[in-house]
Design a protein around this nucleic acid. Structure first.
Lengths: 144, 144
DNA sequence: ATTATTTAAGATTTTTTTATCCGAAATAAA
DNA sequence: TTTATTTCGGATAAAAAAATCTTAAATAAT
């Protein structure tokens, strides 16, 4: 469904959010361990998420990553996907055509309209705060 | 959304179906040209689709690929995806967890339930015949 | 200022996916 | 039975994605 970059990125952001809610800043190592992702790759992805202003980073001792509570209520899953994978989830044609629109559709185009509409809606209404609280309450898991 | 293998496979099957409706058998070269896919790769994918009994192949002169009209009304898009990509579209976790179920969910699990349900329904009700007729009527395109 | 800690960023390697190539097998027609 | 045509299947190659490594830059505490 998503690239590994996106999967790791989402899990990293969710984990950082849960720790930020507790008032803690986290190091790359900690993020990687608790999101079940490779450390070096996580570092690279977090660099990109920092540039996109999705997470906040501080260098040096006592540094690490964090997300303000206010911010994590604003950030939607769609923003993270856009930052890491671009808009392919939104605009990609199921059959890989470079042009596929309502006026020039591939044969599956209309079949996908409803599915895609619902997917968009979900990605654009789900916040990182919502996902982080599910982890904190023990209702769901980041590593399996 | 799908792998290239699946994209090419779907387009190939749809094209073969349109030609079979006209009573024509098609060669790999023809399929590749008219589905905008690499010839050698298309050949390999068609081999797999033949084994899965989705298309029918005949060797030698006047040979090629075909699909019976009866069969193309039975074959659902989901079958082709299963044959080529396996069940990842159905069972894969959005965050890549190896275990992610209603009882042990990732934080996005429940958000995806409705989206996935609708996707499944669409893939399991859309037939190759339906897609082929869209091409024949000129309402949609396979190459762009 | 120095040191230990931590992120930043680019180069490199590994793995997976995508794509090609080529000889073998099958078969219809002459 | 010979020939031309076509799929079959395994080996190989190229490209893209995933993952790692390495050095630099920043900074807090001493």
């Amino acid at each position: 469904m998503f690239s590994k970059t996106c999967e790791y990125g989402l899990k990293a952001v969710i984990y950082i959010a849960t720790k930020s809610l507790e008032g803690n800043r986290v190091k790359i190592r900690d993020v990687a361990d608790n999101s079940g992702s490779p450390e070096a790759f996580t570092a690279k992805i977090l660099g990109s998420l920092t540039k996109h202003n999705i997470v906040n980073s501080l260098k040096g001792p006592y540094g690490g990553f964090e997300i303000e509570a206010k911010r994590m209520k604003q950030i939607k899953v769609s923003e993270i996907i856009f930052a890491l994978d671009g808009d392919s989830v939104y605009n990609g044609c199921a059959l890989g055509l470079s042009v596929c629109s309502d006026t020039e559709p591939c044969p599956m185009h209309e079949n996908f309209i409803e599915v895609r509409k619902q997917l968009k809606k979900m990605l654009e209404t789900t916040t990182i705060y919502e996902l982080a609280t599910k982890i904190k309450s023990g209702k769901s898991f980041l590593v399996r």
